[in-house]
């Protein structure tokens, strides 16, 4: 319970940081509603529409998991709903979903767990109407931490499924 609460806070903090970093005027994102219109698209100072930066600021490109879990939290589901809406706006875009784990497991088990996480996110996007043929999955296990530190904060960030663009010019 406690862990979950911390996790949500961390996830939120990361989203805010990401927005602050990549958009000079961060848009206000309604957490639980799909974005129907794209206020950023016409703003000259915003990210290029359809780019990874655009995805990051309008939907979030990363969802986080609880310890040793691959089920999607409600927070993760709302990010993925926004991703699905974004992907429908850019139907030519293909994505790679990378599953990642914290360092507190063996390499081999974590490779398997990372695949689970990537596929859980893929299945959710597909259920939202995104053509699964547009989505490839990959697992990096515990080999690609985004936060190199060894503490709970870092581990909760490193348990994620990260969406990257495969074909657009502004892609990954």
């Amino acid at each position: 319970m406690q862990a979950k609460k911390i996790l949500l806070n961390v996830g939120l903090a990361v989203c805010l940081t990401a927005m602050a970093a990549c958009a000079s005027k961060p848009p206000i994102v309604e957490a639980d509603k799909p974005i129907a219109t794209r206020p950023m698209a016409s703003t000259p100072s915003g990210p290029i529409p359809g780019s990874l930066e655009d995805l990051k600021s309008n939907a979030g490109h990363r969802v986080y998991f609880d310890l040793d879990q691959y089920t999607l939290t409600t927070q993760a589901q709302s990010v993925l709903r926004r991703q699905a809406a974004w992907l429908k706006e850019y139907p030519e875009t293909r994505i790679r979903l990378a599953g990642n784990c914290d360092e507190r497991g063996t390499r081999e088990y974590n490779l398997a767990l990372g695949a689970r996480r990537a596929n859980a996110a893929k299945a959710f996007l597909a259920a939202q109407g995104v053509d699964p043929a547009r989505i490839t999955t990959i697992s990096y296990g515990k080999e690609r931490p985004i936060d190199p530190r060894s503490n709970d904060t870092a581990w909760s960030k490193n348990r994620n499924a990260t969406t990257l663009l495969v074909t657009t010019s502004a892609g990954s």
Partner: peptide
């Protein structure tokens, strides 16, 4: 080896 398909190993 392990083989993974659709997330299951």
């Amino acid at each position: 080896m392990s083989v993974e398909r659709g997330g299951n190993s």
